[in-house]
Simulated scan of single mutants.
Amino acid sequence: MKKLVIFILILFSTPLTLLFGASTELKNAAQPGLNPVPITLVSEQEGPQAGKKIELSRPDLEYRGTLILNSPYPAFGGFSDILLSNDRKTFLAISDMGFWLKGSLNYKQDGSLKNVERRAEMGQLLNTEGKTFAVKYYADSEALCRAPESGYLVAFERVHRINRYDSGTPLDLSGKATTLSIPDQLKNSPKNGGIEAILKLPDNSIFTLTEGDDSVSALSKAALFVDGKWINFEYKRNSHYRPTSAGNLADGRILILERKYRGPGTLGIRFCTINRNQMKEGAVLSPEFFCEINLPIPRDNYEGMDIIKDKEGAQWIYIISDDNFSPVQHTLLTLLELKKTTAN
């Protein structure tokens, strides 16, 4: 309900033809003349200085800084997933209000986060008719990945579905969507417990994982799309953690970002892993603990993740938080470096 109210406030805080375009409740409403639109993006450093020795549960993992991202653009916020270019200079994020953000990152000499370029752009996701979503219920984009051949896949919650966008431009979600058929167990997910993670695996199969709902089951529905068919299985949640994103590790494992929140003082952020060879029809996957993110590393409602491997074999793990459009939360972009070892 809170996000619905925010969605309505955003809708009326900016001219319709610029921000939201057609409404299903308005006749002959014009689509935005410019989509995406240029915006101003700013950042500031948060937390301990990058490079400072931070005790983590893995000796091969190093903290590489956190940025708070901000923009005066009224639709900025609510980011639920992120992708990075292979050179780590450009990022693409989606929001649960049906918007996407494309920006550029600058780094310090050691590879840690420095700041963002002020010039960025923000666009609206379009439906299969090439129109914007004017109702939050249809615009709740929660997960993002590269498509097997070209373009990108975006998973939506509430009205559970996967859309494909292929504008021909890297890290761009412009243009009319096409749909990817999904199995019934994903379509029938709880309204607020749908697909939270979608990931193209190295073999070009597509892995999907729902957030699930503790009031329904301790299992999250999951599926793998391979050779035109879906393989259905489940993911076992524990300790009130719920999966929010997924990324490919160099050793073939899949890294799962998990978050828990049961009230003030209960926020938990951690990573677990699963294996591709466990994904079989009817299987129940039990994730293995990888590491936990604790203070003094800044923590918030981390929902999105991407992993980039560089030429030297290091893996750069980016996580972005959903601020829920709340004055007490922030859009945090945090970077971790998983150093090359004989184990990874």
Rank of each mutant, 00 (worst) to 15 (best):
L56F: 07
G313Y: 08
N301W: 10
A143W: 02
I317A: 03
K53P: 06
L336S: 10
E117F: 08
I269S: 04
I307E: 05
Y261Q: 12
F91Y: 13
S71D: 13
S95M: 11
I317T: 05
R270Y: 00
V116D: 05
L144D: 15
G304K: 04
S217P: 02
G78Q: 02
L4G: 12
D140H: 05
E303M: 14
N275W: 01
G304W: 02
S245C: 11
D96Q: 14
F76G: 00
I308E: 11
A283F: 01
R64D: 08
S167L: 09
N248L: 07
F20T: 03
H330Y: 09
F20V: 06
K309S: 14
Q185G: 00
L180T: 05
R253H: 13
S321Q: 05
E288C: 00
D203G: 06
L92M: 13
A22H: 03
L11F: 04
A134F: 03
P32L: 00
Q329H: 15
E292N: 08
K89I: 04
S181E: 15
I256V: 11
P243I: 06
D310P: 06
S205E: 08
Y261M: 13
S43I: 02
M97Q: 08
T128N: 13
V284C: 05
H160Q: 12
A197N: 07
S217H: 03
T179R: 10
M305H: 05
T128G: 08
D81E: 15
N115D: 15
V226D: 14
D60W: 01
E211T: 06
V216Q: 15
V226I: 14
L56C: 10
S245H: 01
A143R: 04
P72E: 14
S85D: 12
G130P: 04
I10E: 09
P202W: 00
I39S: 06
E288V: 05
A197D: 09
N344R: 14
I293M: 08
K221L: 01
D203C: 06
K53T: 15
G47P: 08
L153F: 06
Q49C: 07
E149S: 07
N106P: 04
N106L: 14
F225Y: 15
E288T: 09
T128S: 13
